[in-house]
Amino acid sequence: MSYRSHVLIAAGGSAALLLGALAFQYLGGLAPCKLCYWQRYPHALAVAIGVLALWLGGRTLAWLGALAALATAGVGLYHTGVERGWWEGPTSCSGAGPGLGGLKGSDLLSTDGPVNVVMCDEVAWQMLGLSMASWNMVASLVLVGFWIAAARRG
């Protein structure tokens, strides 16, 4: 396969994963958590890099695409670890927060706090025992391979 084909598959794969995430969100009703959003940003960057790589060519852009795909795989691994309890997640969206002990009664009854917070340490959907974060990690690692193959041909 050519440089162009590898870039199309890699950037197209990131675009497909972004569209899939949006479909789960808007068609499936599964609101994303903070870490889910973090996984989307490198995919968007990889799509932009892919457009530039198709237009300008070159190994550097392909390596940057690989780095973007690797970044989203890394966040997917981190999110998977939070979901499985391997490590603590952000206190703003996981059960690792400071707890209720330091709060006053008025704090507990306040309506000024965040509403509808989606927890990062709860699995909203899974297939074959893997969560969406895990599947994102696996798919992103495959995309890293396509970016590297493009870089070698560029």
Rank of each mutant, 00 (worst) to 15 (best):
M1P: 15
S5P: 00
L8F: 12
A11R: 02
S14I: 03
L19Q: 07
G20Y: 08
G20T: 08
L30S: 02
A31F: 05
P32M: 13
C33A: 15
L35K: 03
L35N: 10
W38N: 04
R40V: 03
R40K: 10
P42R: 02
H43Q: 14
A44N: 07
A44Y: 07
L45S: 04
L45G: 07
V47H: 11
G50M: 12
V51T: 09
L52N: 00
L52P: 00
G57D: 07
G58A: 08
T60E: 07
L61D: 03
A62N: 01
L64P: 02
A66V: 01
L67D: 01
L67M: 11
A68K: 03
T72V: 13
V75D: 01
T80N: 06
E83L: 10
R84C: 11
G85H: 09
T91K: 15
G99L: 08
G102P: 07
G102M: 06
L103S: 09
L103F: 10
G105C: 01
S106G: 01
L109I: 06
S110Y: 07
S110E: 06
S110G: 08
S110L: 02
V115M: 03
N116C: 05
V123N: 04
M127P: 00
G129Q: 11
M132A: 10
S140N: 12
S140E: 09
S140P: 12
S140Q: 05
S140A: 15
L143S: 08
I148C: 05
I148Q: 00
I148K: 02
A151R: 05
A151Q: 08
